[in-house]
């Protein structure tokens, strides 16, 4: 049995020290000075597939605020899976470097999927830190980058910074439930609670925005589809532990809503990646080690805390193994 109390303490400590709010990094000038002192180069990668409606605004905001006005980002690259719309034309017109994923590392072939673009970015881009931001964000803002790269700039021991978004649709004063989207809450968080309880500390493990050091990116495999974020967390956790992670509250993220059918596909892809990880980590036959504690989160102001619930799924045997039943029905 996993030591639930010890896990809780690890998570509480990590939430205290490694969970940020983007507002803590408002001073861009200070951030740039720290980046220059650390001798870091930062690349921003936006993976795309038919994102003409939102890509222009993202590039304009990031280039203006984080390259032209404040030189925090050294390159902005759009890596595209083969859009049929004007995604690349628009991105290029606003000053982004644009690449077709299929043209990068041609010796490795091309596989259509977001993870492919993220993986090829490691080869194509030159930054010591690569910050990945999805292209479908309607309320784009410089915080989507500054909030993620800042912990890496200020803390050399942090290697992987994940975004999370507080999404209280409505709540009264005080405590409110907090967490990820539907797939996170009904699939990933239960799986992590069972097999990798410390990873439940990530409020939004599936968020598409994260910044990572090159030495971490180059040592982990990349599922090309929906499972890339989940498998990243497991792989980095296995190699470097929870201390390698940080997470930043970027407040709200407005994006197009996905249908339940699409979420089903996403869940299926994630589950495949997850089971692959269990196999590669030789955990398939270690089911008795599973935790019975389910971990969710609630927030008060900007303070996040765990909500633990012990859930033991007990079972009854088939009725035809019960003596009384057999006697009653003369079986």
């Amino acid at each position: 049995m996993i030591d639930s109390e010890a896990t809780s303490q690890v998570i509480e400590k990590w939430l205290d020290t490694n969970t940020y709010h983007h507002g803590e990094f408002w001073d861009l000038q200070q951030l740039i000075e720290a980046k220059e002192k650390a001798g870091l180069k930062i690349s921003l990668c936006i993976p795309t597939l038919n994102e003409e409606k939102t890509i222009g605004k993202e590039i304009i905001i990031f280039k203006s605020e984080l390259m032209d006005r404040y030189p925090l980002v050294d390159e902005i690259a759009v890596i595209d899976s083969g859009s049929k719309d004007k995604t690349l034309e628009i991105a290029g017109s606003y000053g982004a470097d644009t690449y077709l994923s299929a043209d990068i590392l041609p010796s490795q072939g091309f596989k259509p999927g977001k993870g492919e673009n993220l993986w090829k970015a490691i080869y194509q881009l030159t930054g010591d830190i690569i910050c990945y931001v999805d292209a479908d964000i309607k309320n784009i803002h410089p915080r989507f980058v500054t909030g993620l790269v800042a912990p890496l700039i200020y803390r050399p021991e942090v290697h992987y910074v994940k975004a999370f978004y507080d999404r209280p649709l409505a709540f009264s004063e005080g405590i409110r439930p907090s967490g990820g989207g539907r797939v996170t809450e009904i699939l990933v968080r239960p799986l992590f609670s069972l097999f990798f309880p410390e990873l439940t500390a990530m409020v939004q493990p599936l968020s598409g925005e994260y910044a990572v050091r090159r030495e971490v990116l180059e040592e982990i495999p990349f599922p090309i589809g929906y499972g890339v974020e989940t498998s990243h967390l497991i792989d980095v956790y296995q190699k470097r532990g929870l201390e390698a992670f940080a997470q930043t509250d970027l407040e709200s993220r407005v994006h197009r809503n996905q249908s339940t059918r699409d979420l089903g596909k996403m869940a299926f892809g994630i589950l495949q990646s997850f089971i692959n990880r269990l196999e590669s980590l030789d955990m398939v036959d270690r089911m008795p080690d599973m935790s019975n504690v389910f971990r969710q989160f609630q927030a008060e102001g900007q303070r996040y805390e765990q909500v633990l619930k012990e859930i033991i799924e007990e079972e009854r045997p088939p009725m035809n193994t019960i003596d009384e039943y057999l006697k009653k029905f003369s079986r």
Binding site: I60, I61, K63, Y94, G95
Partner: peptide
């Protein structure tokens, strides 16, 4: 100054 100008338009609009 294209991106700076347009970024100001976007942010002032939003």
């Amino acid at each position: 100054l294209k991106e700076i100008l347009l970024a100001n338009v976007v942010m002032a609009s939003e």
